[in-house]
Amino acid sequence: MAWSMKIVLITPSGPTAHTGNRVAASRWAGILRQLGHRVRVANDYDGGAADLMVAVHAWRSADAIERFKAAFPTRPVILQLSGTDIYEYLNSDPGPTLRSMEQADRLVALNDLAWKAVPKSLRARLCVIHQSAPPLALPHRPSRRAVVVSVIGHLRDVKDPLRAAEAARLLPAMSRIRIEQVGRAYTMEWAERARAEMAINPRYQWRGDVPPAAVRRLLARSHAMVISSLSEGGANVVSEAIMAGVPVLASRVDGNVGLLGADYAGYFPVGDTNALARLLQRLERDPSLVTTMRKALARLKPLFRPAREKAALRRLLADLRRSV
């Protein structure tokens, strides 16, 4: 008889259904169901019985984890660590985050360098599971009308979301670079800043929150994608770009380097508008750079296939079954 568990998967609510945490939770729920388990997704824990809790985001799920462990102290918790957990809250508000990490039986990080931020006493519980993405259903056909550079992610401080737009302003007049950004503004201030940028920057367009199909269409016609975050846990949009073969121009932070590798050619220093502008110029003028990045992404592609993420989750559950 197949092994089946009743699993409650906690993912805190966000301002949009397209937050990284929500997308990750939805994907994991689907994989766990494929593995034969019964999964209930909830914003918070209601006290109901379950064989296992899977929690996304240590800081936001701290109370849910504590209540579950109080009710069922011998039943396991798997905690997926977000970027804000390990690169922000561990420093600014460590109490809830550390409590969640200490109560969890297994910790899951999304990039290969996350271990550096995890306390040494908890590293034995840590494993890395890369977020997968399916191959693009659409062929990758970069636009011929312009050199389209996409920025995919919500407008909030940690994403440094207007860095690509500001870099595009520094390009020569003859440049064909166009920045197309999608994602919801988390505050009115960010919405106003994006609109103000469009008013003065003919190279920039912000389209707001769009459905996943529109994101895939944008990727399919992009020459490159910029991820300019101040910190990252392991962005799924990088997985999507890798699977689509779209070169990534990334801020050099552990969450990006832990996905793309230390020797990847498309990095720029965090917050460095001039360096990103130079990289955009090279993207437009230097075919060898594009070839180098695409070859690197092709080598990385097997790490981000859905079958690999499914196998990793299967191994994690089997390990828990043996040891907890």
Score class of each variant (00 low, 15 high):
Met1Arg: 12
Trp3Tyr: 06
Trp3Ser: 05
Met5Gly: 10
Ile7His: 08
Thr11Tyr: 01
Pro12Trp: 01
Ser13Arg: 03
His18Arg: 08
Asn21Lys: 00
Val23Phe: 02
Ala24Gly: 07
Ala24Leu: 02
Ser26Asn: 13
Trp28Ser: 08
Leu32Met: 13
Leu35Asp: 00
Val41Pro: 10
Asp44Glu: 14
Asp44His: 09
Gly47His: 07
Met53Gln: 04
Met53Asp: 08
Arg60Gln: 15
Arg60Tyr: 12
Ala62Trp: 09
Ile65Gly: 04
Arg67Thr: 06
Lys69Ala: 04
Ala70Asn: 11
Ala71Asn: 04
Ala71Cys: 04
Phe72Ile: 03
Thr74Phe: 03
Thr74Glu: 15
Pro76Gln: 08
Thr84Gly: 10
Tyr87Met: 02
Tyr87Glu: 12
Leu90Met: 13
Asn91Phe: 11
Pro96Gly: 09
Pro96Gln: 09
Leu98His: 02
Ser100Pro: 00
Ala104Ser: 14
Asp105Ile: 06
Trp115Arg: 11
Lys120Asp: 13
Ser121Met: 05
Ser121Thr: 05
Arg125Glu: 04
Leu126Pro: 00
Pro134Thr: 12
Pro134Gly: 06
Ala137Lys: 08
Pro139Met: 07
Pro139Arg: 02
Arg141Trp: 02
Ser143Thr: 00
Arg145Gln: 06
Val151Glu: 01
Arg156Thr: 07
Arg156Gln: 13
Asp157Gln: 07
Lys159His: 09
Glu166Asp: 11
Met174Gly: 11
Ile179Asp: 03
Gln181Glu: 09
Gln181Pro: 01
Tyr186Lys: 08
Thr187His: 11
Thr187Gly: 10
Glu189Ala: 13
Arg193Glu: 15
Arg195Pro: 03
Ala196Thr: 06
Glu197Ala: 01
Glu197Lys: 00
Glu197Phe: 00
Pro202Met: 04
Arg203Met: 00
Tyr204Met: 07
Gln205Pro: 01
Trp206His: 12
Pro211Cys: 08
Pro211Val: 06
Ala214Lys: 10
Val215Gln: 12
Arg216Cys: 00
Arg216Trp: 03
Arg221Gly: 03
Ser222Asp: 09
His223Asn: 07
Ala224Cys: 10
Ile227Phe: 00
Leu230Met: 08
Leu230Gly: 00
Ser231Phe: 14
Ala235Pro: 15
Asn236Arg: 15
Ala241Val: 05
Ala244Cys: 08
Leu249Ser: 09
Ala250His: 02
Arg252Cys: 00
Asp254His: 05
Val257Asn: 06
Ala262Ser: 14
Asp263Pro: 00
Tyr264Arg: 02
Phe268Trp: 12
Phe268Met: 11
Gly271Leu: 11
Leu283Phe: 09
Glu284Val: 06
Glu284Tyr: 05
Asp286Arg: 07
Asp286Ser: 13
Ser288Leu: 11
Leu289Met: 13
Met293Arg: 12
Arg294Asp: 10
Lys295Arg: 14
Leu297Gln: 13
Phe304Pro: 09
Phe304Met: 07
Arg308Asp: 09
Glu309Asp: 10
Glu309Val: 07
Arg314Lys: 15
Arg315Ala: 15
Leu316Ser: 09
Leu316Phe: 02
Ala318Thr: 13
Ala318Leu: 14
Leu320Ser: 13
Leu320Lys: 11
